[in-house]
Amino acid sequence: MTQLPTTTDKKLGLVIDLDTCVGCHACVISCKEWNTAGYGTALSDQDPYGAEPSGSFLNRIHTFEIVPDGGEVIGSAGEARVVHFPKSCLHCEDAPCVTVCPTGASYKRAADGIVLVDEDMCIGCGLCAWSCAYGAREMDLAEGVMKKCTLCVDRIYNEDLEEIDRVPSCVRTCPAGARHYGDLGDPSSDVSVLVRERGGFDLMPEQGNKPVNKYLPPRERSALGSAASVPAVQEDTSDATGLLAWIDRALSGGSAKGAS
C-alpha cells in the first residue's frame, strides 16, 4: 500500500498565487471548519481558550519579508516586500511520507494523485511528519492519528454539492482569488496554463519530492517612490447640466472653469 503508484491518471492539486494572497487566513479557517466535520476525525484544539492554545491545522499562512540585494529598508518596509505564504500538503509525486509509513495508512491514489491517510490504520508514530519537508502533516493530539490536507476529497467529487462548490474549501473561500484548483497533469488545464504563463515553481525542489502543487511568484513591482510621479487624472466635467452643473460650479471654487 505504501508503495507509490508509478503514474497517476490525474495530478489534482493547487496553484497558489503569492502575488494575490493578502494573508487574510480565510482559507485557514474555512479549511479547519470543513475538515473538522468532514473526512476522518475532528481537527482538535488543545487549550483553545487558555493561555497556550494550539491545534491541528491542514493549512497555515506564513508571512515572509524579502529584502532585495542592496535594497533600502525604510522603517519597517521600504524596498522590502511582504509575501503572505499559504502552505498545505503539496500532494508530491514522490511523496516520502507515503513510503516511510510502516502500516500502509498513508497512500497516494493512482486515480488522481491525492495523498491520504486511512485513520483507522494509522498508529500515530509521526514518522511521516518527520519525512515531510513542508510541515504538511500534523498529529491530532486528541485522536493520536496523522491529519493532512485531503484536497477536500469529500467536496470535489460530491454530487450533492452544486458544481461551483466542488472545489477544495480553501479555493472556494479565498476572497482574493489567490488559490486555484485543477489537474496539473493535463497540460491544457487552466491551472497548467497559469503555471506556464506566470512561471509557477516548486517548493524545495532539491528535496526531490516532485510536489504537484505549484506557487506563482509575486509580480515585478515598480521602484520605490515612482508612484508619486504618476500625474493626477484631469477629469472633464464640461458636459454637466442643471443641478450637477451648479454643484460642479460651487465645488470648483467659483472659477466655473468646467461650466458651459
Binding site: 516586500r81 517548493l203 524545495m204
Partner: peptide
C-alpha cells in the same frame, strides 16, 4: 528555496 522567493532577495 523553501519559499521559492530567493530571486527577490533575502
Amino acid at each position: 528555496s523553501a519559499t521559492g522567493l530567493g530571486n527577490l532577495g533575502r
